[in-house]
Computed example of a mutant assay.
Amino acid sequence: MSRDERARQLLEVAWRLAREEGADALTLPRLAECAGVTKPVVYDHYASRAGLLAALYQDYDRRQTARMDEALASSADNLRAKAKVMADAYVTCVMSQGREIPGVVAALAGSPELDRIKRDYEREFMARCRKVLAPYAPGALSAARLWALLGAAEALSFAAAAGELGAAQARVELADLIRALVERPQAR
């Protein structure tokens, strides 16, 4: 198995482990056991649990970004369409990952180093949102509105993944919220 194939296998096993046993079970020895490899193989890919958590979050973010970018490229050029695509992509990505992503996100927040990684990805996401939504805004989109968009996207998606509301409802509410944040004039 090539190094890239092994890395992909380890990520898939780590996601399964998080889904079945929770993020607390994500230790390098447990990953080695579940993947059927020796500990040195896992440690060769991830120097620490923090490295594994960072790799999981990066994997999730890559998929989320690709899904959203692909859908945005083929969507109509209006706010309603862009908001729908963004909401659909965000919720769908979280739903496809299941209940394990909230656990990984919570584990990331437990370490300053990992929290920085998460914040960097959040800022990149908000920059993409600003670029896509700016043409439809009556003024510049404030950082506060972009943080609100991100918080709502995460909260609605995580609630849907936990079964607290339907995915379709989360998508509709998020698209409505995105439009409201963009269309409302900025306070002076």
Rank of each mutant, 00 (worst) to 15 (best):
A54R: 12
R62K: 13
G139Q: 13
S2T: 14
D44Y: 15
V85N: 01
M86F: 04
M95E: 03
A47R: 15
K82F: 01
R130P: 00
Y121T: 05
V42T: 09
R123H: 00
L150E: 06
L10I: 08
A187M: 08
I178H: 02
V42H: 11
P135M: 01
L146W: 04
R16A: 15
D4A: 15
L52Q: 08
R188Q: 10
A73F: 01
K39M: 14
C93S: 14
L177Q: 12
W147A: 09
A161C: 06
P185Y: 07
A159H: 10
A180R: 10
Q97R: 09
G51A: 15
G151K: 05
M95I: 04
D24M: 07
L56T: 11
V13Y: 07
A175P: 05
A87L: 01
F125Y: 05
E113C: 00
V105N: 11
L31Q: 09
A54K: 11
E124Y: 02
N78V: 02
A71E: 04
R128E: 01
R19H: 13
D4H: 14
L114I: 04
E21N: 11
S74F: 03
R67D: 08
R6D: 15
P102D: 08
L174G: 05
R49W: 08
E33P: 02
K84L: 02
K39N: 10
E183K: 12
L177D: 10
A161L: 04
K82R: 07
L72W: 02
L26H: 06
K118G: 09
M1D: 12
R6G: 15
Y43H: 14
S157W: 04
N78M: 02
L174M: 05
P40C: 02
E124Q: 01
V13S: 07
E5D: 15
L146K: 04
L114C: 13
S96C: 11
A66C: 06
D59N: 11
R30W: 00
A137D: 01
S48H: 13
A161H: 05
W15T: 13
R80T: 11
V91M: 05
E124T: 02
G51W: 07
W15M: 11
L108M: 14
R171C: 03
A50N: 14
L165W: 03
V85R: 05
W147T: 09
I178C: 06
